[in-house]
Amino acid sequence: MSERAVTPARQAPPRGRRRGVLGWLDVRGRRLGGWAFILNRVTGLGVLFYLYLHLIVLSQLAAGPSSWNALLNWFLNPIFLVLDVVLLAGLLIHGLNGIRLTLVEFGLVVSRQKALLLAFGTVGVIVLLIGALRFLSDVGAK
């Protein structure tokens, strides 16, 4: 199985679609699966960027309690908590879409794709709302 085989953009690219990342912006002939593919790549890159940011920030733990706790107070201001909600949204989109993609790729629920999308979308929105309420209630909590 090649990773290229699963990129909808490659399955039926319209004539003249640009290669590479700019091709993602090409709306011609793109169906639902194509949009999901783009969304997965964009959220994946975003979450990967966050992962490295997160790993760098964690190095402050090695500097001891005062450094870490000072940083923590900073992260409990509303701007960062809103960014946490954005992060959760990215994780939910990428994770749920990843499950959907894997199910479809292994030949499961191929005929019920729209229902699957609706179900996962509903789950995602509910978890995001719970997360947003949880995170935003933490403003200045420590």
Partner: peptide, 20 residues
């Protein structure tokens, strides 16, 4: 990641873990 998010951001008082 589900475990990580729940353990570090949902169940902890204040949503983030202090040093201890």
């Amino acid at each position: 990641v589900t475990l990580h998010m729940i353990a570090n951001h949902f169940v902890v008082k204040g949503g983030l873990r202090d040093y201890q």
